[in-house]
Amino acid sequence: MTTQRDRWAELTGGQGGEEYARRFARLAASGQDVHGEAFFCAALLGPGARILDAGCGTGRVAIRLAELGYHCAGVDVDLSMLAVARREAPASRWLHGDLARLDTLGLDPDFDLVVAAGNVIPLLAPGTEPTVVRQLAAVLRPGGLLVTGMGLDAAHLPLPEATVTLTDFDDWCERAGLALRERYATWDGAPYEQGGGYAVSVHARAAG
């Protein structure tokens, strides 16, 4: 594990799992669609694909994708979040680990898609972002996809200011062997406009 705590841990003290789960349960009960990330990923690859939910939290995205026929694993550093995921889907593969040290978890580098939703990248420990992107790219098969969603301003983050720019993020991806394929403003595919406060990005690893 890294010695520096990630921004999510600074916000929650590593005890946010149950409240996070309750918040999404309330949203679902009110009629809101809470599975936009899963449906976005499902539109990119057919059932049977191998998907890693990086920063999986309570497992909301991976559990829905598994229900749709995908082979999923989840990784998170927050044990309170993983406890919820393990309770909700005990047969699924949930790994406790730091994304900056993903290579220590014994994952085969053959995932068809890695998804990092829920502001995973902006909430990493400061300075670890390029390493995490490189680690995520390394577990993708040739031609595999990295899908990310992140806030780019305070209105779209649980933070007073942005921690990541798209310019920096695209640079980290390029250095990790990933090329930008698509970018949207929302998980339902609204077009992204320069200066927007949220971005959903699809980067692809070279095919060979």
Rank of each mutant, 00 (worst) to 15 (best):
N119T: 08
G195D: 08
D153M: 11
W187K: 09
A179V: 13
L180S: 09
L178N: 03
A155N: 05
V115H: 06
V120R: 00
D153T: 08
I121L: 13
R183C: 10
L136I: 09
T165C: 08
D153A: 14
D168Y: 01
V114N: 10
G143R: 13
H156V: 01
N119D: 11
D171K: 07
G195H: 07
C173S: 13
T128G: 06
L145G: 00
A116F: 05
G118W: 11
A155T: 14
E174R: 11
R141V: 11
E182T: 05
A185H: 04
R134Q: 15
C173K: 07
L146F: 06
F169N: 00
G189R: 09
P130V: 08
Y192E: 02
E129I: 03
A154M: 10
T167M: 02
T148L: 03
P160H: 12
D188N: 10
L123R: 01
Y198M: 14
M150R: 04
T167D: 13
Q194N: 10
G177R: 10
A154N: 07
L159I: 02
G195V: 10
R134I: 06
P126N: 13
V164M: 14
A154F: 12
A116N: 06
G149C: 08
A176N: 09
G151K: 12
R181F: 00
R141D: 03
A190S: 15
R175G: 02
L123I: 00
V139W: 03
V132K: 05
T163Q: 15
P191F: 02
N119A: 09
A176Q: 11
L152D: 06
C173Q: 12
V147P: 04
D171F: 08
D153R: 13
V164E: 07
V139L: 04
A162T: 07
L157C: 07
T131A: 15
R134M: 12
L145D: 02
R141N: 03
G195E: 06
A162D: 01
R181N: 02
T163H: 09
L159C: 00
V164W: 10
D171V: 05
T163Y: 11
A199L: 12
R134E: 15
P158Q: 14
T131Q: 15
L136Y: 13
G189Y: 01
A179H: 05
L152A: 08
A125M: 05
P191S: 03
G144A: 04
T167P: 00
A185K: 02
Q135D: 01
Q135C: 03
G149L: 09
L123T: 01
G127F: 08
A162R: 15
L113Q: 09
P122M: 14
G143K: 12
G197D: 11
E193R: 15
A117L: 00
V120M: 00
L140K: 02
V147A: 10
F169S: 00
L124K: 10
A117F: 08
T165H: 04
E182A: 08
Y184V: 03
G197H: 03
L166H: 00
N119L: 09
G177C: 13
L152N: 03
V132G: 06
P122L: 14
D170E: 13
E161Q: 15
G196S: 06
G118S: 11
P122N: 14
A176H: 11
C173Y: 09
T186W: 02
A199C: 15
E182F: 07
P130Y: 12
L180V: 14
P126R: 14
Y192C: 04
A185Q: 10
T165K: 05
E193H: 13
V147S: 08
L136E: 12
L159S: 00
A162Q: 04
L157S: 05
R141S: 06
R183G: 06
